[in-house]
Design a protein around this nucleic acid. Structure first.
Lengths: 230, 230, 230, 230
DNA sequence: GATGAATGAGGATTCATTCAT
DNA sequence: AATGAATGAATCCTCATTCAT
């Protein structure tokens, strides 16, 4: 996208240093949290002088934002790379598996987002909107849904964000609360057998959500008359 | 349960102070995190001398554990109070609404659990197991499931923890990632309309999960032959 | 000396407590120094409430003074119990052995006196003079000297305090600097063989000091013309 | 000895600061003891920021060790500079006067060693052995003894460490217990007249120790048959 | 006399950040 | 760009001492 002007050697070196710092900061923020991370630790891990970190990023928060934005960029990038099969159910499977896998393999992302939510999202709000590339993400889900409705398999009017929610929330919960859940229910949720079962569970609920099942609709309609949350 | 021996005035006063400190600590930990909370702030909020906090709890971590255990105790207590209707679908609705409502009204709990997961669960692991009262919780879900299967409405063999997962994960995600989700999708997830829709969504997936729908089973069986997560 | 009026039970008990506190304080001050000793530790060791220590002694310094005075009283008491043989050389031996033994067996005393000197003697100065019972001590040495001069063995004009100095300084140094000396010269000064040799050394110097040796006097006279310390 | 590489301006400045801190720490530790010394006071006296002290030395104990090692280094250095006269008695005089003078003029050293002994020598034990330069010290005494025996004045077989003990213990006691001794015997031991007398006393005992006096040997032999310390 | 709760002042250490080179 | 020295503002925790019972 950006026009890459040729860089001087100085600039190249500087950018490499910058990248090393962001990488180190990522590790540290994930491991120790926002308040728990020491600038000293970041600079040490990056192998540079502490003051240099300040020269490049000004202060800790800015550096944290850089790390946060990068993490969002990376997942969106990965999502964009997904190859969706033509078969709508297989496409759903793919999305589910990708999501759970990504969370399992990048717990860092969940940690950062967790930190961010504990902080009320103040830093993410400062991140340029376009970094989040939301449309790209929604588009993926829209494609899956179109696929299924075109095949006459899924019901009409499924909202892509709703579908994202159903998928994401269950994958998220699995990974993000793995410690407390594991302690509470005495299981290792990342054990292979557990994961397999979890995937089946998620697929089940997702299918229940997208398929056109008259009984579910009927029951939902009935239930909607009852008082609900709020 | 506990035989309440008459307490001396000293003991009464001491217990009251202790309770005030825990309350204040709860507020502070939720607002500022584990590392971000200053003992000074806790004592100030409790209206007692800083040293007194140390006299009662020894150090910050112990105090945090007390707060954490209490929060777990409270949700379990609330769950135990739920009145479940006879009708199984209504019972499900009740559980869903209770869960989402509890999370919305006690974001503190989610924050504490979030902090705990960021910390790898080290503190929860130190909390006496019986404080978690897991059986009580599972029992509630087992009851709902029995209700539905007895009525010939739900399929056989539903695991209560699985059901808890489907319900809890979606309620959890809604509240726990409300800031980042809100920023990403430009929506206020706690707005009334949003919540209503969210409840409907959760009910939908839960019904899809518990009802005996042959088509879902068939598709799941097919999908299980594909490669999955891991 | 003091007229002992019969004490009430209360008073007896109180005095016993008081004694336990002083004992505990002694142990603690010796082990941890003046600044290093915690009132908490004293009360714990005495098995009483912290406030009670304050009730009895008012503050830490006063308590320390009590301990210091008691320690001085005890050594003076022990010195008073020494049985001096008639033979003057044997009497000297007795004094030397008593002194060294007392220091070895009561390093506490040296520690307290050491603390006191590090503090410029401010606390000892507050201790009633008569507690020190100096005359008793000097008298012992005077007796030994008289013994020796009467027997025509010692020279005339030996000052008892000088003699005390010769004896005491060497015994003192042995015990008081045993750690640093031991580290410096790689030797365990309290090992039996070492002690024996040390006693012989001290006896040697003491005899050299009290005996009437013309050569020594001659050399001293010559040496006195040289510039000296100051 | 050390090859002095040219230092950068940074290094020079840093070393100067370091030296100022050690100097200030020395003063403070001597004045207030190990526990009694406040890091604040050290940094204030050194005219630097408190944190800088930590940057340079890590913690109070390390700094204390630095001070202790330096003090040992200094006395050994001074001892190495002594010019010993050829005449053996004069050489002894020189050693005695040097020792007493050094203690009088550097009570700091005695205080530090006193602190160290109260602490069981734990810190000195951590100091590199070669800092203590023990051989240098022993060599000085060996020289004096050889001097005297070669001249046929001293008896055979005098152990240099024994001689050091006789000299050092009396000088030590004079200075190290000056406060308690002064209070006990109501004298100012550092007054000129007192010092002169003290030097004479020490010389007397030292001569008694090194000279070949048959009567002393005879009495010592007799006395050795009596029970002794232990 | 004896106890436990409570306080206030202080003190070691840490750490984000700035300065000088 | 990069470094190391230096700073100032916390922040945790301790402890002598007092208060209330």
């Amino acid at each position: 996208m950006t026009k890459d002007k040729p860089l001087t050697q100085h600039e190249l070196r500087s950018q490499a240093t910058r990248a090393r710092i962001v990488e180190a900061a990522h590790t540290q923020f994930v491991a120790n949290g926002l308040e728990g991370t020491r600038m000293e630790a970041i600079s040490a891990e990056a192998g540079v002088n502490k003051s240099l970190v300040y020269r490049h990023f000004g202060n800790r928060e800015t550096l944290y934002r850089e790390v946060l934005a990068r993490a969002y960029g990376q997942i969106r990038e990965a999502e964009a790379q997904i190859h969706l099969p033509e078969d709508p159910v297989a496409a759903l499977d793919t999305m589910i598996c990708f999501t759970l896998n990504y969370y399992i393999e990048h717990p860092d992302f969940l940690v950062l987002v967790g930190i961010e939510n504990l902080n009320g999202g103040v830093h993410l709000r400062e991140v340029a909107r376009d970094v989040l590339k939301v449309e790209r993400l929604v588009e993926r889900y829209r494609t899956v849904i179109r696929c299924g409705t075109d095949a006459g398999l899924f019901r009409q009017g499924i909202d892509p964000v709703d579908l994202y929610l159903v998928v994401s929330s269950q994958c998220w919960f699995t990974v993000a609360t793995r410690h407390t859940f594991g302690i509470t229910f005495q299981v290792d949720v990342l054990a292979r057998a557990e994961i397999e079962q979890r995937v089946a569970l998620i697929k089940h609920t997702v299918l229940g959500f997208v398929l056109d099942e008259p009984r579910i609709d009927a029951l939902l309609a009935r239930s909607a008359k009852q008082p609900t949350a709020g």
